[in-house]
Each structure stands twice: as C-alpha cells, then as structure tokens.
C-alpha cells in the first residue's frame, strides 16, 4: 500500500464534492471510465448502488405460441464510488458476505465486480454515530479501497493504483498528523464494547427488557430501509395481460407481512417480537453465522426513527441488564 499527499489545488482536478458525496471530475472520469450515477441523498446509504430498492429480475412475454423468458442482466460497467467508512464497511464486511455467499447473487456480483470503492475518512461524526462501539471507526480502511483524508490544504491518500501517480511525497510528519487527527475524532465517539458482548446477547432472548425497549417502536421500518446493512427483500410480479416482469424490492422484518404464513399464522405477532428480531439479528444471529455484527454504527436508524429509538441505547441497556458485564 502506498500513500502520499495531493495538493488541494491538484486534488480538485480529480475529485469533486456534490451533495456531501465525493465524485471524480470529468477529467478523472475520462481516465477511469464511466462514473456511477449515485446521486443519492446522504440520508440513504451506499447500499442503494449495489442493492437497489427495486430491481427487475426477468421479463416474460407470450410470443404467439410460447412463453419467452428474458433474463435481465445489469450492465456491470466500471464505476467508482466514495463512501464513508460505515457504509463501505457495510458493503465489504456485510452485503458482500451475504450476496456473494453461495449461491451467488448474480446482479449484485456484476455490480460489485465493476465497482471500485474509495473510503473517505469521517472527520465530523454526528451525535448519532457509534461506529467504534461495533468494531469500526471514522478512520476504518480496507486493503482493497483507496483511503482519503481531506485536510484544509490538501488531501492525504492511501491505497493502490494509478491515482497515486499524482501524489507528492508524504513523509513521517504527515503520518503523525493523521494519527493525531484520528485520535481526536475517535475521542468524540463512545468507547468500544467488550468483545464478548455479542455472544452474551444470546441469553437475552427471553428478557423482560424487550417489552420496555420495544414499546415505543411503531414498526414503521424507516430504520431498516435506511440501514446500509439491512438486506431483506421480497419478490413480486408486475403484469400487463400477457407480458410482465418479476422483480425484487426491499422488505423489512418490522412489517407483519414479513413473517406472515399461508393460513394466517404469524410467528412474530407483536411489536416486541419484530423489534427483538431486528436487534438480535443485528447483534447476535448474524454474529453467529458470519462472525461479526450486522451493524456498522452509522446511526442512520437513530436519526430516522420518529420515536427516538436508538440502537446504541438498546445495546447499552441490554449491557446494563446483563449481570456479568
């Protein structure tokens, strides 16, 4: 991995900001191929790019004598996307694992293969952020991705590939500065959880606490739709007489339909069970299967919840209820 500095004057030539996201400039695009049209609002996460809220799977058509089925494939054109550590981590450590686990999700794979990720250090954590509580951090980086730290005058860059050809010398002093900056930002965030915590949650399934914690939840699902790691979907169909298509769209464990069975039985009948599922899936069930938690501490759900439910507080309260902690 190489690293260096680009003078601000220069980095503007390659990177531009738009609506709080960073994009490559026209000039860079020429060099790096087509730019991915991820003009998202910041309130949505980067998952939209790989796992859109609606997506055609195949199309069918009565062609006079027989049914014709046409698979829909994504183009898989090269693209480049800068994300904050929490969103990038959601892709690299969570959705990649889920969708690229056998059987591989083809559309996700085609998009993912063509996507180059850049990670942008997070210099202004919000009051909702708690990435450090769940193993990430505002300076979290990954081998595969370019890492940028925007500074007043210049940009610190770490990674591999051609972009670094434009960098000037870095040096030890700058490294130290970076570390100091990282320390400063991290100090603002809550301290990490004890590492045994996720496993211990297992004992909380029957807790009385859940009644209390879930009471104010209205099962609206805003939290799950905006979460960069929630990946549940439903498959539905649209028809016009003798043609139509099958597609998938987001679904949420907060909804009654989600667990509704033929015959009308619902194993998660009330808010409590749905709420518990969401949090235990995030913090425990996923951990059991993939060895990490299904939450990157981005705080989107906390900001979105109309009723002030905070996963960080749920974690704290469960921890408090745990006599061994």
């Amino acid at each position: 991995m190489s690293e260096g500095l680009i003078a601000k004057r220069k980095w503007w030539e390659w990177i531009e900001t738009k609506k709080d996201r960073i994009f490559l400039t026209e000039r860079a695009k020429k060099r790096y191929g087509e730019w991915f049209p991820a003009e998202g609002k910041v309130v949505k996460s980067g998952k939209e790019v790989l796992f859109p809220s609606g997506e055609e799977m195949y199309r069918y058509l009565w062609a006079g004598e027989e049914w014709k089925i046409e698979e829909r494939e994504v183009s898989g054109e090269f693209s480049f996307l800068f994300l904050l550590p929490c969103e990038a981590r959601a892709i690299i450590e969570v959705t990649d694992k889920v969708f690229l686990h056998l059987p591989v999700d083809k559309n996700y794979w085609l998009r993912r293969k063509a996507l180059s990720l850049g990670i942008l250090a997070c210099l202004q954590p919000e009051p909702t952020c708690f990435c450090s509580l769940v193993g990430g951090g505002p300076f979290w980086r990954d081998e595969e991705a370019l890492f940028l730290v925007p500074r007043k005058e210049d940009i610190y860059i770490q990674g591999e590939g051609e972009l670094l050809a434009f960098s000037e010398e870095g040096g030890e002093k700058i490294k130290e500065e970076m570390q100091a900056l990282q320390q400063e930002v991290e100090n603002e965030l809550p301290s990490p959880l004890p590492s045994y915590f996720p496993q211990e949650l297992y004992h909380h399934f029957e807790d009385e606490e859940w009644n209390e914690l879930s009471w104010r939840c209205l099962n609206c699902g805003a939290c799950t739709f905006l979460c960069p790691t929630c990946y549940c979907f439903d498959i539905q169909v649209k028809m016009w007489g003798d043609e139509g298509y099958r597609f998938r769209c987001y679904d949420s464990c907060m909804y009654s339909e989600y667990t509704m069975m033929a015959g009308g039985h619902n194993p998660r009948p009330t808010t409590k069970e749905k709420f518990r599922n969401r949090f235990l899936h995030k913090l425990e069930f996923f951990y059991e299967r993939y060895g990490r938690s299904l939450c990157t501490g981005c705080g989107r759900c906390i900001a979105a919840c109309p009723n002030g439910i905070s996963i960080a507080r749920v974690i704290e309260e469960l921890k408090e209820a745990d006599p061994d902690a």
Partner: peptide
C-alpha cells in the same frame, strides 16, 4: 401510470 420498467 405504473412504470413499465425501472432501474436495473
């Protein structure tokens, strides 16, 4: 009118 197609 419902969209005949949407993003893929």
């Amino acid at each position: 009118v419902k969209e005949f197609t949407f993003y893929v």
